[in-house]
């Protein structure tokens, strides 16, 4: 029986199946993957849900500029013209008279126009409202929460919500009398 010497010092005991440093690397990578997965989940979850006509409109809670607040639930049973605007937006100035005219003409027919000032300052928003003699309820979208819920891409944008709270139409860009006439019948409550 030949007893050859070994080339190096053998390590006492059997070698571990997985070295400690490898184990640490695996644990670190696992922790990173879990954290990245959480981030990805959160980012994907934060994406605004694509609004589809016929689906329920996202609920909102609007702090009104003139005081008080307004929610979509408060307007249940009425058609809602939800208009996003800003004092720095020129097309918003063009459509403001039409929105006021719509409010004046259709509030007794069960339609409410609601203005949401997007990325605007209170003083500038108040000046805008006074300039155009706007009397329909208007509020500022603090934290852009409503804008994100509705996934707006810019201002002006207008959402037409029927008396059941479902989205009946979306108009991106300045409104015209023709588009208003096209959408209002869709949200008018049944007599």
């Amino acid at each position: 029986m030949s007893d050859h010497p070994s080339t190096t010092e053998p390590v006492a005991g059997p070698p571990p199946l997985v070295s400690r440093s490898l184990l640490l690397v695996v644990v670190a990578i696992s922790v990173m993957l879990v954290l990245l997965a959480l981030l990805a989940w959160r980012v994907l979850r934060a994406q605004p849900v694509a609004l589809a006509v016929g689906n329920p409109a996202p609920p909102f809670h609007l702090q009104l500029i003139e005081g008080g607040s307004l929610t979509l639930a408060d307007l249940q049973g009425r058609g809602v013209v939800l208009n996003f605007w800003a004092s720095w937006c020129d097309p918003c100035r063009d459509e403001a008279p039409l929105l006021e005219q719509t409010w004046q003409g259709s509030q007794n027919m069960g339609i409410t126009v609601v203005g949401v000032a997007h990325l605007d300052q209170k003083a500038a928003a108040v000046r805008f409202i006074q300039t155009f003699g706007i009397t329909y309820p208007n509020g500022r979208d603090s934290g852009s929460l409503i804008a994100r819920a509705y996934g707006i891409q810019g201002v002006p944008e207008t959402f037409f919500i029927d008396p059941a709270g479902n989205l009946a139409g979306v108009w991106r860009g300045p409104l015209t009398a023709e588009t208003m006439q096209q959408f209002l019948p869709l949200i008018q409550p049944a007599p």
Binding site: S2, H4, P5, S6, T7, T8, E9, P10, V11, P15
Partner: peptide, 11 residues
């Protein structure tokens, strides 16, 4: 003075 661990083997 240990060189990297190598399993003992016969020459």
């Amino acid at each position: 003075g240990v060189v990297p661990r190598i399993r003992s083997q016969s020459l």
